[in-house]
Design a protein around this nucleic acid. Structure first.
Lengths: 218, 218
DNA sequence: AAATATTTTTAGACTTGTCTAAAAATATTT
DNA sequence: AAATATTTTTAGACAAGTCTAAAAATATTT
């Protein structure tokens, strides 16, 4: 049995360690979870004893195969619920996260299976992140940061790197959503700002924005 | 802030005390929650300190107005989720409860508001129990136990008293669902069994069944 | 109404997960 | 490579919620 707290630690290790591949430091986890390093030390020892993580004192922690499976399952649930909240209950980008964070811990295989079917087997969540399948497999798409696109490239917005409420609200305000098509009409070398055209109207976005928006080339 | 455990105790007191009106004994709560009386004693003291319950030592416990509001809100959430599971995710009567028991604790006003709208403001859950409105008001319907119906009464099934998995499966097997119309064709005084007709086919049900099925007169 | 049985409460212990403060290990400077 | 800084771990304490065992109150018998 995996407790709710354990699930949250496993999830944090998974995300901090790039899909659970990399080693993660105690402090990094403490920061992510807003707890103290001492609490992390205790928990990481526990996860290791339960076989969810490999851990040597002072050397950070990595998820085991079993730990990764748990993590990917939580991610699957989280993202399916995000689709539900967005598509069926009209939640906006920035309202989704907190609720999905609670819903992801509901335990019922059937629930997720049926929800998946009800939503017609979505492949990506509203932030453009891929939804792992029942076996934990993740299918990713060819995406680049908008800042890496070239002048005259035509791109489609497929995801965000920063999913903070502020950033999502910014995008909303400027009419940028998943699926929005845009053209890069200029890149300013001085401050790395980018001029883009959406629906024949042109505007300038800062490098910071361009660095947090994933697009694919059309 | 109401903890998950507190919510569960409040809910138990509410149900055991007939919509929170009656006084409930420590032992009754312990039995319902599958804990020990000593744990109940502690918690009931805490609920009373927090203003959710009135409690005098050795005299049992009653919900305050505030406690009742919390309870009715949980009931509302529980029943809305039951409708969702049943109507949208094709859960059967007997699979619903466990999952709804988890979902009822998710905290988000907006979630419940939107879910209510998404389900088109249902008035009753799949077991026939009324769904309290946003202000906690419960609208009940004129229902009687099937055992109280008279010979030749034509009735519509509107709810169950016992919602155990076994009972619900029994009903399913015999083609009895909410909304099913049936006619009482005979009552046997010896064992209080009842003969009913559904769709022109007649069969006999025991007094135990008739005592757990709510109907309204057509 | 005394004796017995049942219910309820208290006291003290245990678990999970948290914290602070101090000690130990590792990293970085100089 | 010694000194300093940072990270991580340990030790001990605390809160929530649970339990067992014993004491106190209430209910039921006889």
């Amino acid at each position: 049995m995996v407790t709710l707290t354990e699930e949250n630690y496993i999830k944090a290790i998974y995300h901090l360690g790039k899909q659970g591949e990399n080693n993660v430091s105690t402090n990094a986890i403490a920061k992510e979870m807003e707890t103290k390093a001492s609490s992390v030390s205790d928990m990481v020892k526990k996860l290791s004893e339960k076989g969810y993580a490999d851990y040597k004192k002072y050397q950070g922690v990595t998820l085991t195969k079993e730990g990764k499976l748990i993590a990917v399952n939580i991610v699957r649930k989280h993202r399916l619920w995000e689709v539900f909240l967005s598509e069926k209950l009209n939640f906006s980008w920035d309202e989704i996260h907190d609720v999905a964070e609670q819903l992801e811990h509901i335990k019922s295989e059937k629930l997720i299976k049926q929800l998946d079917a009800f939503l017609d087997y979505p492949s990506h969540d509203p932030h453009g992140d891929p939804i792992p399948d029942e076996n934990g497999r993740i299918q990713s798409i060819d995406k680049i940061l908008l800042s890496q696109a070239q002048v005259n490239n035509i791109c489609i917005c497929v995801g965000v790197k920063d999913s903070s409420s502020e950033f999502l609200k910014y995008l909303d305000k400027h009419g940028i959503a998943l699926g929005t098509e845009l053209k890069v009409t200029n890149k300013e070398p001085f401050d790395n700002s980018i001029t883009i055209t959406i629906n024949h109207s042109e505007f300038i976005i800062s490098n910071i924005i361009a660095n947090n928006l994933f697009v694919k080339l059309a």
